[in-house]
Simulated assay, not measured.
Amino acid sequence: MKGIVGGILLAIVGVILWLTTERMETPVISLHKAGLVLAIVGGAEALFALMGLGKKESK
């Protein structure tokens, strides 16, 4: 359950960054692109946690 909540929160933060920082420029990394990466990683984390939960219940 902890992995699902963490993944969803990470995805929400990533989407917020992705949508709100398109015009901001930083010298190291684009916050727009970092938000997209966070959203993808958070979604994958939540998905893998759900798959693990399903495997535990099927045993």
Rank of each mutant, 00 (worst) to 15 (best):
G35W: 08
G6S: 09
G54I: 10
V37A: 02
L38T: 09
V5T: 13
L31N: 07
V5G: 10
I40K: 10
I4L: 05
A46T: 09
I12F: 11
L31Y: 12
T26N: 06
A44T: 02
K56M: 04
G14M: 00
K55P: 04
F48I: 11
I29K: 01
G52L: 07
V28S: 03
S30N: 11
P27T: 12
L17K: 03
W18Y: 15
E57R: 06
V28R: 03
I8L: 13
I12Q: 04
M24W: 15
L17T: 00
K33R: 14
E25Y: 02
E57V: 10
G42Q: 01
A44E: 02
T21S: 12
K2C: 12
A11C: 07
E45K: 02
K56C: 10
G42H: 01
K55D: 13
L38C: 10
G54E: 09
G52H: 08
T26L: 09
I16Y: 06
T21N: 13
A34H: 02
V13I: 12
E45D: 08
G3V: 10
T21E: 15
R23Y: 05
L36D: 05
L31H: 07
L17D: 02
V5F: 09
K2G: 13
G54N: 07
L50Y: 11
A49G: 02
G7F: 00
S58K: 11
K59M: 15
L53R: 12
K59N: 15
G6M: 05
I16V: 06
I12T: 07
A49E: 07
V5D: 11
A34G: 03
G35S: 01
R23K: 04
E45R: 06
T20E: 14
T20C: 12
E25G: 04
T20P: 12
P27S: 09
F48Q: 13
V28G: 01
E25N: 08
L53I: 14
M1P: 03
G35N: 03
A44W: 00
I16L: 11
A44N: 01
L19A: 13
A39I: 04
G42M: 00
L36F: 02
I40N: 11
L47Y: 15
P27N: 09
L47V: 04
L9V: 12
S58G: 15
G35R: 02
A39K: 00
L9T: 12
H32F: 15
L9E: 10
I4P: 07
V15Q: 13
M51W: 09
L36H: 06
F48G: 11
V15C: 14
L38M: 14
T20V: 14
R23L: 04
L50V: 15
S30Y: 01
L53T: 14
I4N: 04
G3L: 10
I12C: 08
V5M: 11
L36V: 01
I8H: 08
V41F: 10
